[in-house]
Design a protein around this nucleic acid. Structure first.
Lengths: 174, 174
DNA sequence: AGCAAAATCACCCGGAAGTATGAATCGTTT
DNA sequence: AAACGATTCATACTTCCGGGTGATTTTGCT
């Protein structure tokens, strides 16, 4: 009786180890019950095989082999279920819609270009004449001229085309 | 004797199954020898345990438990080794060095812009004056003027700045 | 309230840009 | 050889651009 209890304890111990192993691996996996159930079933099967094969006496090795196979399968199944997928990084070419132009404010500050001057610069780079710019901004032609003159000074340009080129390089206009 | 051979046959059969199982799984994996070796080692261990534990008589269940644990571990190890990684696609932002400008030849053809005119256009967009362009191309100022006039016609532009703007949109210049 | 920077406008002038027209030269195609 | 387009150059004229100077108004900040 005591002996039998001892054996049972050892078996329980093994069971505990197995369950612990599983728990640790799955943790927040709610399929724990399923695992427990299947393990219990396995142990029943084991006991059944034991009883059955003892009658057939010396099939001991067969028994061991079956156990080995069974638990190998169990291990594989466990691993399949419990391992998190090995992630593989695959670089995939993606079209990046070009960024919507960010004004280079520091350069603006540095050159001392005012808001109005920037407006004139933008319209200039769009290909408008001074007269057209004046019309768009509701100011006189002379005003546009003074703005553009200051602009050329600040950008160190002699012509409007040069000013546009430099401003584009400084990212003041798209 | 015959009986022993029978047992051996059964054991061999199990071994064959195991090996077959592994072969099927790994197939073109050249680590087959390693697996075979480790399995053989396991079976040796098994036999040793068998002999040893039979002396300790009724530790049968402990034996079974150990086998179970061992082969569970084997199964897990096998699965780990043999499963191909589950691939996960992760889009990763990659800097694309901007393409080095490709001339839009079809548009050139369509508009009937000549080689020389393109040269003038490029220098214009660089901010040069007609006089400077004439100097760079070793031609007279008048020549540059005629080229630019034709250019404005073909590009349907009234001013050089407008021509530059349109040409950039048509990818005739960078 | 007062100051500085920004924005507005004006006038003049020289030069650059653009238009119109005509023409010579050269290489390719038919 | 003739035709064509590209390239070259010229003259004359108009329009636009940019420089220089000065002035007034508006706005933001202290």
């Amino acid at each position: 009786m005591v002996d039998k209890m001892g054996i049972l304890n050892v078996k329980n111990h093994i069971l505990v180890i197995q369950v612990f192993f599983m728990r640790k691996a799955i943790l927040r996996n709610r399929q724990l019950l399923l695992y427990g159930g299947s393990l219990a079933l396995l142990l029943f099967l084991l006991r059944w095989l034991e009883l059955r094969l003892i009658i057939f006496d010396h099939s001991f090795e067969v028994y061991i082999g079956a156990i080995a196979l069974l638990f190998t399968a169990l291990g594989i199944w466990l691993a399949q279920k419990l391992t998190r997928p090995k992630t593989v990084l695959v670089e995939k070419q993606v079209f990046v819609p070009e960024q919507p132009f960010r004004l280079n404010e520091p350069e603006m500050e540095k050159l001392g270009i005012s808001r109005r001057e920037l407006e004139v610069l933008e319209l200039m780079s769009a290909g408008l004449s001074n007269q057209e710019i004046a019309g768009k901004l509701f100011v006189s032609l002379n005003t546009v001229k003074t703005h553009s003159s200051r602009l050329f000074e600040k950008l160190d340009a002699k012509r409007r085309t040069q000013a546009i080129e430099k401003a584009k390089k400084l990212r003041l206009i798209p």
